[in-house]
Simulated assay, not measured.
Amino acid sequence: MTSAEAIRVTRLSKVHGRPPHHVVALDEVDLVLHRGTFTAITGPSGSGKTTLLQCMAGLDRPTGGEIRLGGTRIDGLSERELTRLRRGRVGFVFQGANLLTSLTAEQNASLPPRLAGRRVDPGTVRRLLADVGLGDRLRHRPGELSGGQRQRVAIARALATSPEVLFADEPTGALDSATGRQVLGLLRSLVNERGQTVVVVTHDPVAASFADRVTFLADGRVSGHLDAPTPRAVAELMTASEVG
């Protein structure tokens, strides 16, 4: 594991609403994620895991605390600066692939650099799609692809700008177990073979077991970590956090 930090979160808080009807989604979270690693964030519903991911990715603003992406503090950036960061330094994969139905796989995968105002190299986009197993599906539209293939297009799209961190929120939630394992195996290979930093939010112990480390959240706080996780160990700790 490399010692270089990909993300550092310090005393991160997120509060929705105002007293007395406010909800504390994150309660002074401290977390460090290293480059070239696969981290899974899990916990019960309402534990704050998706809020944490969205704050780290610049999709949501925290109420307090600091977030550093590489050497850049991002919690105080302007909307324009955050847009630039999201388009160039981070990638996103969500539960639904969120592809544009009128575009081909190749066109969907090339969207991020186009939106960032960069020149699109067709060869690079095609290589990305080949790397995710879709080299023969370049001209297929989403309606002509399976759920797993659509999610692979979404991963290729997320990689198109060579992001520092690839974030995924329940990326296998809409897939059957076999297809989900294939997608998770692909994310694992990105870490092993490319040194890509990957952060996944999941409620699934099997999905979490693909990570190098699992971070558990409960009531908006980090409740523990598990290195070299197995599905059984993750499930046991998830059950313990829910009971506790």
Rank of each mutant, 00 (worst) to 15 (best):
G88L: 05
Q196K: 06
S146Y: 03
L77E: 08
E164D: 14
G133N: 02
R87P: 01
G180K: 12
L82V: 03
F167T: 13
L103K: 15
A178N: 08
V201E: 10
P113Y: 09
G135V: 09
V120F: 06
V201M: 11
V199I: 15
L128I: 12
L184A: 10
A160M: 03
G173T: 09
F167K: 14
R118S: 11
L99R: 13
L159S: 04
D169P: 10
A116V: 12
L175S: 09
T202M: 08
D176Q: 12
G71D: 00
L129G: 13
T124C: 07
L82G: 10
G195W: 05
L190H: 04
R114N: 01
L100F: 11
P122R: 12
E164L: 01
H140V: 06
R152G: 00
H203Q: 14
T72A: 06
V90H: 05
V125G: 07
G135W: 02
G76V: 00
H203L: 13
G123E: 10
N108I: 02
L77P: 07
P112W: 00
L128P: 13
S177G: 01
S110M: 09
V120A: 09
Q95K: 09
L85M: 14
A174F: 02
V153P: 09
E81H: 12
R84E: 06
G185H: 12
V199F: 10
L100E: 00
T197V: 09
S78R: 14
D169T: 11
T179F: 04
L111N: 07
V90G: 02
E79A: 13
Q151E: 00
D131A: 15
T202Q: 08
L190M: 12
G88D: 11
F92K: 11
A178Y: 06
L187K: 14
L128A: 07
L134S: 06
L186M: 10
Q107N: 05
E81D: 15
T179E: 03
D136L: 10
V200S: 14
E106Y: 12
V120P: 03
L100T: 08
A97R: 12
R141P: 05
V201W: 05
I74N: 03
P171D: 01
V132Y: 02
L77S: 08
R150K: 12
D75R: 07
T124W: 13
